[in-house]
Simulated scan of single mutants.
Amino acid sequence: MTAPDTLSSRQDFDSLLPAARLDRRGFVTTLVAAGFALAVQPVQASTMITTESSGLATGEATIDVSGDSLPVYFARPENAAGKLPVVLVVQEIFGVHEHIRDVCRRLAHQGYLAVAPELFFRQGDPSKLENVGEIIQSIVSKVPDAQVMADLDACAAWAVSAQGGDPDWLAITGFCWGGRITWLYAAHNPKLTAGVAWYGRLDGAPSENTPQHPIDVADQLHAPVLGLYGGQDQGIPLDDVRMKQEALEKAGSASMIHVYPDAPHAFHADYRPSYRKDEAEDGWKRLLDWFASRRA
């Protein structure tokens, strides 16, 4: 399977759009729950990747955030010399499960200090709930973006003070819910170096907890973000993807979006049937290249 070049024009995006188009905000409002639901599939042990921790220092810790104890998982090279570049890894709606931990170990083997915080810890534990609607209603909908931004700031500071992180090199990557957060954090933290957002929602109706969406902050990014999206994602309309790319171009941003035409939502999630090996591997290579180009 050959991946297309990064899409950057209206014509490129139009070639991938379905013939029948729906109103952009209406589509997101009615199908966002369905988009999450499509990502909930039985575990496929045959495709699940397990990255060894040999040569790494891994573990769990807690970070004090305004009197609360934020749980995190971290992974870093065991005997690294000098300060380590830091990557914040942002979960899906399902919390910091083994796949997210494995992503941290993959990054650690590439020389990064990776930190994955449990960003729903105040609202509840997604692993205790059995259906996605319950997770969204009982937990995700109650998590304020401002709270998430503050927690990520605390993780970045902790990575430097407690784990030998480089105060001058900070990146972020996130999946699904975490992909949306990646775009927002790039507009929040002026010290960010780079970001990679995997199929994160781009638009939606504003609310008290989610007053802005990535489409609204295209001209406010402090660091370049690479967006990785699936052309067959039923929860994120390609109209949104196109409009986000156009907004980035209008803002003169170095950020860009890459679309895999045949990929569904959660194509990187190797623990369920949505996984697409070719696209996931290509996306991972793009992530590593994106970060490496900002370490030069």
Rank of each mutant, 00 (worst) to 15 (best):
Y260K: 08
L238A: 10
F291A: 10
G283M: 02
F267R: 02
D219C: 06
R294I: 02
K277V: 10
V225I: 13
G230L: 05
D282F: 00
V217K: 01
I215K: 04
M243Q: 14
I236T: 05
A280E: 00
V217E: 02
L221D: 06
L228T: 02
D278L: 12
D240F: 00
G230P: 06
I257Q: 01
D233M: 07
R276H: 13
W284F: 12
D282C: 01
E246W: 11
Q232N: 15
L288P: 02
V259S: 09
A218N: 01
P261F: 07
H268G: 12
E249Y: 05
Y275L: 09
P224D: 06
Y275S: 11
E279L: 02
V241R: 06
P237A: 12
A296P: 09
W290E: 04
K244R: 09
V259A: 09
A247P: 12
Q232H: 13
V217C: 08
S293R: 13
H268W: 07
G227N: 01
P273F: 03
G283C: 02
E279A: 15
P273K: 09
M256Y: 04
Q232E: 15
D262A: 15
H258V: 08
G227L: 03
H258T: 10
Q234K: 13
E246Q: 14
D233S: 08
G283Y: 00
A266H: 02
D289C: 01
A223V: 04
H222K: 10
L248M: 08
H222M: 10
A254H: 07
R276L: 13
D219N: 15
R242Q: 14
K244A: 13
Q220M: 07
A223E: 06
F267S: 02
D270M: 03
D262R: 14
D240C: 15
R294T: 03
D278A: 15
G252E: 11
E246A: 14
L226C: 04
R294E: 07
H258F: 01
R242S: 14
G283F: 00
Q234M: 14
A269T: 07
A254W: 03
V225W: 01
G230E: 01
R276M: 14
Y271G: 07
R295N: 11
Y271E: 08
D239E: 15
K285T: 09
V241H: 09
L287Q: 12
P214A: 05
I236F: 10
V259F: 04
Y271S: 12
S255L: 07
R294V: 02
H265N: 14
P273N: 08
A247K: 11
P264D: 13
Q220S: 13
G283P: 00
G235F: 11
D240T: 03
A296H: 12
S253G: 09
V225Q: 04
